[in-house]
Amino acid sequence: MPLWTKKPPARKTFRRTSGLRTTALTAAALSLALALTGCAGAGTTRPSAARAHAAPGPQAARFGTVDCREARCIALTFDAGPSENSARLLDILKEKQVPATFFLLGKRHILKYPELVERMAAEGHEVASHTWDHKILTRISEKEIREELVRTNEAIERLVGHPPTLMRPPQGRTNDTVHRVCRELGLAEVLWSVTASDYRTTDPALITKRVLAQSSRDGIILLHDIYRGTVPAVPGIIDALKARGYVFVTVPQLLAPGKAEPGKVYHP
């Protein structure tokens, strides 16, 4: 006979402990899920709010050829590149005439593919920071946060002629210290509303399905061009969303005529 049937008190204790452990694990999983979907805290600014609070004047009337106060805009963003897949992605975006925002990693990425960073900027895409080495910023010191961002800013500036104005914290994890450092460095934080979890699948059809199911006006789509299944999914995503009436823009275009303010967090 199993031991626990002979000792009811021990069985009850085990059940209570097990229940507490399950509750703790569930809470931790929910916390991670919130971060991974870009819901990393309160105090975020929606694109529509950024547009509404823009200073009046003729220079604030439009941004390029798209006015997201009128158009059904959506932003396509890619994290953690460049990679060996980025050249093909840039070919697709050029063919489809779609601008994107690239949140780039420094180590092993910007340093390895400088020509792709230059091409991104030359072809009208927004080049932004995803930190130097993808450290979780909420787990490191303020000095280390600054180093992660400064090194990436400097590497991008050397290649495109100016530092980035946008950054995306790894896993969407941020806090007041990150906000303060970003404000000092002239960076706004950008989260997302659509994720395909493309780090968990190589199936382009599944990636496409997930993106289309979550997309809405003013959405910010998170993808990773470092994964094998992502770039093949991009043409179908673009075609399907265009058929629904969406206009693709960069993140600055999505906020215009407002401007991303350093230290603020933008989330659809």
Rank of each mutant, 00 (worst) to 15 (best):
T5F: 01
T5D: 01
P8Y: 13
A10P: 05
R15L: 15
L20D: 07
T22I: 02
T23M: 10
A24Y: 15
A24F: 15
T26D: 11
T26M: 14
L30G: 11
L34K: 14
L36T: 04
C39Y: 11
A40L: 06
A42E: 02
A42Q: 01
R46C: 05
R46T: 15
A52K: 10
A60C: 10
R62Q: 13
F63K: 14
G64T: 03
T65V: 00
C68F: 13
R69W: 04
R69Q: 05
E70H: 15
E70V: 15
L76W: 08
L76H: 04
T77F: 02
A80T: 09
A80I: 05
G81D: 10
P82E: 06
S83D: 01
N85G: 02
A87V: 02
L89F: 01
D91P: 12
L93Y: 10
K94V: 03
K94W: 00
T101V: 13
F102C: 07
F103V: 07
P114Y: 15
L116A: 12
R119E: 13
M120E: 15
E123M: 00
V127N: 08
T131F: 06
T131Q: 07
W132R: 06
W132A: 02
L137D: 04
T138W: 05
R139A: 11
E142R: 15
E144Q: 14
I145M: 06
E147I: 06
M167A: 15
Q171C: 10
Q171N: 07
L187P: 08
L191Q: 14
A196Y: 11
Y199N: 02
T202V: 00
L206N: 06
I207R: 14
K209I: 00
R210D: 04
L212I: 11
A213N: 02
S215Q: 07
G219E: 02
I221P: 14
L223E: 05
D225H: 10
Y227I: 03
Y227C: 01
R228C: 03
P232G: 09
P235K: 04
G236E: 10
I237S: 01
L241G: 04
K242S: 07
R244S: 03
V249W: 15
T250H: 14
V251P: 01
L254C: 12
L255Q: 01
A256E: 11
A256K: 07
A256V: 06
G258L: 06
G258V: 08
K259Q: 13
A260S: 09
E261T: 13
H267D: 04
H267R: 15
